[in-house]
């Protein structure tokens, strides 16, 4: 048996102090210990992206990160994406554009898309397909997912422009 390790991390803005086994995977910490079951396990082999969460603002596959590696980090899961009530523009666009069928891939898809839009606020269709390479969907055929990401990008840009206008006024 290995020695348990103390870690401190923030998950969706809430601070946690825990003692964990070094081999505990971040995805299991989130799902089994913190009850955040929005993060899914699809392949468990770093390929499908269903387990994608943000670690210090960037998308990672939480089945391939040890909980101890998230010590001192900020973790955001699909449950914390808005930071409050209502839907994030990506969540709203996935709903509007019918970008999910079974929904299994959706939390990871949205967290990966959020990372993409942070890097590139106005991606082309090609750039979206390339940017979501790490996420597999077995239902939708991807077309509506790509459309939803484009729509969410437009909405986020409009909000950004609105915020700037308000500042100027």
């Amino acid at each position: 048996m290995s020695t348990r390790v103390p870690i401190r991390l923030s998950v969706n803005g809430r601070a946690h102090e825990l003692e964990v086994e070094p081999r505990l995977l971040l995805v299991h910490l989130l799902r089994d210990q913190l009850g955040l079951t929005g993060t899914h396990v699809g392949c468990d082999t770093s390929n499908c992206g269903a387990c994608t969460v943000h670690l210090d603002g960037e998308a990672v596959k939480s089945c391939t990160v040890l909980a101890v590696q998230a010590d001192a980090a900020e973790v955001t899961t699909i449950e914390g994406l808005t930071g409050g009530d209502g839907l994030h523009p990506l969540q709203a666009a996935f709903w509007e554009d019918h970008a999910l069928q079974c929904g299994y891939c959706t939390p990871g898809m949205i967290m990966a898309a959020a990372d993409l839009l942070a890097r590139n606020p106005d991606p082309s269709e090609e750039e979206i397909r390339h940017g979501l390479e790490g996420n597999l969907c077995r239902c939708t055929g991807y077309h509506n997912i790509v459309r939803a990401v484009r729509d969410a990008a437009a909405e986020l840009r409009a909000r950004e422009a609105g915020a700037r206008t308000t500042e100027v006024v």
Binding site: T52, V60, D115, G134
Partner: peptide, 9 residues
């Protein structure tokens, strides 16, 4: 290399 999530780590 791989995908953005892998490149982030």
């Amino acid at each position: 290399i791989a995908d953005q999530q892998v490149r982030n780590r």
